[in-house]
Protein backbone atom coordinates (compact mmCIF):
# COMPACT_ATOMS: atom_id res chain seq x y z
CA UNK A 1 0.00 0.00 0.00
CA UNK A 2 1.29 3.46 -0.80
CA UNK A 3 2.32 5.52 2.19
CA UNK A 4 0.02 8.47 1.53
CA UNK A 5 -3.11 6.35 1.51
CA UNK A 6 -5.24 6.56 4.63
CA UNK A 7 -5.59 3.35 6.56
CA UNK A 8 -8.93 1.61 6.00
CA UNK A 9 -11.03 0.25 8.89
CA UNK A 10 -10.22 -3.30 9.97
CA UNK A 11 -12.24 -6.17 8.54
CA UNK A 12 -13.60 -6.78 12.04
CA UNK A 13 -14.93 -3.25 12.25
CA UNK A 14 -16.47 -3.51 8.78
CA UNK A 15 -18.07 -6.82 9.71
CA UNK A 16 -19.93 -5.06 12.50
CA UNK A 17 -20.95 -2.22 10.21
CA UNK A 18 -22.55 -4.80 7.91
CA UNK A 19 -25.02 -5.42 10.74
CA UNK A 20 -28.07 -3.48 9.59
CA UNK A 21 -31.71 -2.93 10.48
CA UNK A 22 -32.87 -5.26 7.71
CA UNK A 23 -32.10 -8.92 7.15
CA UNK A 24 -31.73 -8.44 3.39
CA UNK A 25 -28.91 -5.94 3.88
CA UNK A 26 -27.22 -8.11 6.52
CA UNK A 27 -27.00 -10.93 4.02
CA UNK A 28 -25.95 -8.94 0.95
CA UNK A 29 -23.30 -6.85 2.71
CA UNK A 30 -21.83 -9.62 4.86
CA UNK A 31 -21.53 -11.99 1.95
CA UNK A 32 -19.77 -9.38 -0.14
CA UNK A 33 -17.43 -8.49 2.70
CA UNK A 34 -16.44 -12.10 3.37
CA UNK A 35 -16.14 -13.25 -0.24
CA UNK A 36 -15.08 -10.27 -2.30
CA UNK A 37 -13.81 -7.35 -0.25
CA UNK A 38 -10.22 -8.55 -0.06
CA UNK A 39 -9.93 -8.70 -3.83
CA UNK A 40 -10.96 -5.05 -4.27
CA UNK A 41 -8.43 -2.33 -5.07
CA UNK A 42 -7.87 0.50 -2.61
CA UNK A 43 -10.38 2.87 -4.21
CA UNK A 44 -13.07 0.23 -4.32
CA UNK A 45 -12.43 -0.67 -0.70
CA UNK A 46 -12.70 2.96 0.29
CA UNK A 47 -15.99 3.28 -1.56
CA UNK A 48 -17.36 0.17 0.13
CA UNK A 49 -16.50 1.67 3.53
CA UNK A 50 -18.25 4.86 2.58
CA UNK A 51 -21.24 2.95 1.27
CA UNK A 52 -21.65 1.36 4.70
CA UNK A 53 -22.19 4.81 6.22
CA UNK A 54 -25.29 5.35 4.02
CA UNK A 55 -28.74 4.73 5.49
CA UNK A 56 -30.58 1.43 5.25
CA UNK A 57 -33.46 2.62 3.10
CA UNK A 58 -31.13 3.94 0.43
CA UNK A 59 -29.02 0.81 0.51
CA UNK A 60 -32.15 -1.25 0.11
CA UNK A 61 -33.22 0.78 -2.92
CA UNK A 62 -29.81 0.48 -4.55
CA UNK A 63 -29.01 -3.14 -3.73
CA UNK A 64 -32.45 -4.72 -4.02
CA UNK A 65 -34.76 -2.54 -6.09
CA UNK A 66 -31.86 -1.69 -8.37
CA UNK A 67 -32.47 2.04 -8.48
CA UNK A 68 -29.41 4.19 -9.10
CA UNK A 69 -27.94 6.38 -6.36
CA UNK A 70 -27.96 10.14 -6.92
CA UNK A 71 -24.29 10.16 -5.94
CA UNK A 72 -22.70 8.56 -9.03
CA UNK A 73 -19.51 7.67 -7.13
CA UNK A 74 -21.38 4.72 -5.63
CA UNK A 75 -22.45 3.32 -9.00
CA UNK A 76 -19.32 1.27 -9.44
CA UNK A 77 -19.29 -0.39 -6.01
CA UNK A 78 -23.03 -1.09 -6.13
CA UNK A 79 -22.59 -2.66 -9.50
CA UNK A 80 -19.81 -4.84 -8.09
CA UNK A 81 -21.98 -5.97 -5.18
CA UNK A 82 -24.95 -6.65 -7.45
CA UNK A 83 -22.83 -8.77 -9.74
CA UNK A 84 -21.66 -11.05 -6.91
Amino acid sequence: MEADLEELPSIEKLRWQCRRGMLELDLILKQFLENNYNQLNYNEKELFCELLSQNDQDLQQWLMNKTSPADSRFLEIIDLINRH
Partner: peptide
Amino acid sequence: VFPTRSHTVA
Protein backbone atom coordinates in the same frame (compact mmCIF):
# COMPACT_ATOMS: atom_id res chain seq x y z
CA VAL B 1 -25.26 -0.79 16.25
CA PHE B 2 -25.53 2.78 15.00
CA PRO B 3 -29.05 3.92 16.12
CA THR B 4 -30.56 4.44 12.67
CA ARG B 5 -29.69 0.82 11.86
CA SER B 6 -32.21 -0.50 14.38
CA HIS B 7 -34.84 -2.98 13.18
CA THR B 8 -37.56 -0.30 13.32
CA VAL B 9 -36.38 0.67 9.81
CA ALA B 10 -37.81 -2.62 8.53
